[in-house]
Design a binder for these strands. Structure first.
Length: 463
RNA sequence: GGCUGGGUGGCAGAGUGGCUAUGCAGCGGCCUGCAAAGCCGUGUACCUCGGUUCGACUCCGGGCCCAGCCUCCA
């Protein structure tokens, strides 16, 4: 039985889908005005594991995963102006880059990936519904705002109470708002800004209403899981609840999931602090799978400290797993009733405890290593299970040799050159010229190539 | 100031009221021409002060410290 920690209730709850034949999840995706960083990668990878596990539990065709793209906002407009391109060109470019990053990280494409600018009709319709029901008002400056005071449960997701928020309001109160907590649904266009027609004049939507409209359009008024980074809990998700429940009269979402921050030197990684690393920067130095592994080494709600030491650690761990699989041909069906399989699945069922799941993979790797010489068939069976389980984490998807030889080979010897040197070395070994053999091995080691002599011959890998 | 979450071994990171997490690194041994990999073994933990308990790292309370939200942010 899957249990999920629900931010809304601050409790671990059994997961009961509204419709087991169509489990529905919405995750707030990227605002596409720049390259994705490691914080974005964590959200992509964590919800990819959630998606994979839900597909495993309910069947691949019974899970609908929506991850939106925010392709209109202040920063996009600003960046497009800076680069002298129209916003579609800019956002198109970064959506493409995001897709490359996601693919590199072995993140499955979501079922739908709606873009705000392609859902203007839905957005406008929802704003109109809020106006009609008295939850929104038009301000003197042409903007449309949500009237927070009308929504009884405001603050329930983030555990905030509106009075405290008003007392602590740090931002200069916008003259146009009736209440500092009110937030914009529709921004009247300023000269030179991209704009869409609406009953309230040309303008563009506020960020929050986009997600309410897109999620409702794709998943209906009431769905199972809504996720995102922890920084979206307030105000974004709080506002989504206020909008959607006011507009539809339905309970919006059953389970809210929030991913913890990636930190650098004990500080949140973020654009505004400038302490971020892009996915592209990291994958230039480490294989993408190393990054994916690293992101799964801590529980998704815990903070995750980013550092090179951690990535080296991840690389070493993944090397251990792939080394166990090397030279083994998986055979047969994976037995998911096996005690280790159960432990693995129990871990994922326990609010997606990926560190515990990873521990099981190492136990299987050890079994394979113990069995490989005396019981090849048994080892092959364990390998089959290991790969089947790893697939739920989106790991171990490469051929072992490809991973092991795919290290940082920049500028080093080519595969062919390595093979040639190994042949030379083996010739020397045959002649018991160990000085020469060691010289070749040391020379290769200098260049990041590790040789391993085994009963089946010499294998190699890149560090 | 209001509200969250957290403090576990050299590092990272799960977890449990009494029973080996796991990975990386270390140490001893086996294997190896020597290594590497692998296997066997092994050391080092649970912020602090009280309380509950036969027994607490694990539950309760105080303290200290860290991170985050209250403003755009995954």
């Amino acid at each position: 039985m899957l249990k999920i920690y629900n931010t809304l209730t601050r409790r671990l709850e059994p997961f009961k889908p509204i419709d087991p034949n169509n489990v529905r999840m919405y995750v707030c995706g990227m605002t596409v005005y720049d390259m994705c960083h490691i914080g974005h990668a964590r959200v992509l990878v964590v919800f990819d594991v959630v998606f994979r596990h839900l597909r495993h539990l309910y069947g691949p065709e019974h899970v609908t995963y929506v991850r939106n793209v925010t392709d209109i906002d202040d920063k996009i407009i600003q960046r497009a102006n800076e680069q002298q391109v129209d916003i579609d060109t800019l956002t198109g470019r970064y959506i493409e880059e995001m897709h490359k990053d996601a693919a590199a990280l072995n993140v499955l494409p979501p079922t739908f990936e709606p873009r705000a600018t392609r859902h203007m009709a839905d957005i406008i319709e929802m704003i109109q519904a809020l106006l009609d029901k008295g939850y929104a008002y038009r301000a003197d400056n042409g903007d449309v705002y949500y009237d927070v005071s009308r929504f009884e449960h405001y603050g329930q997701l983030s555990g905030k109470n509106p009075e405290d928020l008003r007392a602590g309001a740090r931002v200069a109160v916008d003259e146009a708002k009736d209440d500092p907590l009110d937030f914009v649904l529709w921004k009247a266009a300023k000269p030179g800004e991209p704009a869409w027609d609406s009953p309230w004049g040309p303008g563009r939507p506020g960020w929050h209403i986009e997600c309410s409209a897109m999620s409702t359009h794709c998943l209906g008024e009431h769905f199972d899981i809504h996720g995102g980074g922890l920084d979206l809990q307030f105000p974004h998700h709080e506002n989504e609840i206020a909008q959607s429940e006011a507009a539809t009269g339905e309970h919006f979402v059953n389970y809210w999931m929030h991913v913890g921050f990636v930190r650098v030197d004990e500080e949140k990684m973020s654009k505004s602090l400038g302490n971020f690393f892009t996915i592209r920067e990291v994958t230039a130095r480490y294989q993408p799978e190393v990054l994916r592994y690293f992101l799964l080494t801590s529980h998704y709600r815990s903070p995750l400290n980013y550092s090179d030491v951690q990535l080296e650690n991840a690389k070493g761990a993944l090397t251990t797993l792939y080394t166990a699989l090397r030279g083994i041909t998986p055979a047969g069906e994976a037995d998911l009733d096996d005690p280790l399989a159960r432990r693995f699945l129990d871990a994922l069922n326990d609010d997606f405890n990926t560190p515990e799941a990873l521990a099981v993979l190492f136990e299987l790797a050890h079994e394979i290593n113990r069995m490989r010489s005396d019981d090849p068939a048994g080892a092959a069976g364990r390998a089959t299970l290991m790969l089947r389980l790893a697939e739920l984490l989106g790991l171990l998807y490469q051929a072992p040799e490809d991973f092991l030889r795919g290290g940082s080979g920049e500028g080093g010897p080519s595969d062919a050159e390595i093979e040639e040197l190994i042949a030379k070395r083996n010739e020397a070994r045959k002649n018991r010229d160990f000085a020469e053999a060691d010289r070749i091995r040391d020379a290769l080691a200098e260049q990041g190539v590790i040789l391993e002599d085994g009963p089946e011959g010499t294998t190699w890998r890149r560090e």
